[in-house]
Amino acid sequence: MHGSGVLSVWERSSTARVVPPARPRKLAKVPFVELADGRLQGVVSSGSDIGRVYVSSVEAGTYAFACSTNNNRPCGGARGTFCNHIRALVGEAVLQYGVERVARYLKAEVDAEEPDADSVTAVMAATRPAQGDRSAAAQVFSRFLRHLAYLELDPTTDPLPEMQWFPTTRAAA
């Protein structure tokens, strides 16, 4: 509610405003990216197999990283350093959220004159991060699949049953 007590259109519907991306991005390589659970995490398409995706993540502050297939097999390129999937994830996160927000979230102090995804990755890689726990991959992949399911729905302002747990602003009748 606003100071006037009048609800805006988006507050009366089952939809919410979405913050637009900092810059447009292509979803083919990195269809899902989020800053959540103390990590930059997402789903990255395989460059060699159209049926394979990787779930990649970088932990804020420690930069511990994990990368594995959707079948929980470890990424062959993530041995002691960031693989190309993680580099692509950072790049797309910067496009989605902006370099300042990504660097702040990851606690990466970038000194570059004009920071970009490569400078954020370089700061993190310079700390020689360890491989992290891959246990969150299932949750990240599940959220990605749930987001895909919403894309198949027709646009509507009708309530979605799985969103009923959100508090309502209307008084009970």
Rank of each mutant, 00 (worst) to 15 (best):
G77V: 08
D158K: 01
V120W: 12
E114T: 12
S48F: 02
V53C: 12
E92L: 09
E113D: 15
L106I: 01
D118S: 04
F82I: 05
F141I: 09
G51I: 03
A103F: 02
G91I: 02
E162A: 08
P161Q: 04
G77K: 10
L106P: 11
T157L: 04
E100L: 15
E92T: 13
S57Q: 13
F144G: 09
A130K: 15
D116I: 12
R79W: 11
N71K: 15
Q96V: 12
E59F: 00
Q139Y: 09
D154V: 00
R146W: 08
N70C: 11
A149L: 06
L153V: 03
G61S: 13
P155A: 13
F144P: 04
Y54L: 00
A117M: 00
C83T: 03
T127G: 00
K107F: 05
C67H: 03
L148N: 14
G77Q: 09
Y97D: 01
D154E: 07
D133F: 10
G51K: 08
I50K: 13
Y105T: 09
H147W: 02
T127S: 14
V120P: 10
F65I: 10
T81L: 12
Y63W: 06
P74H: 02
A93W: 05
H85P: 13
G98C: 11
L160P: 00
A122S: 14
A112Q: 03
V140I: 11
N72K: 14
A122C: 02
R101E: 15
V90A: 10
H147Q: 03
A126G: 10
P129S: 06
Q131M: 14
R87S: 08
A93M: 05
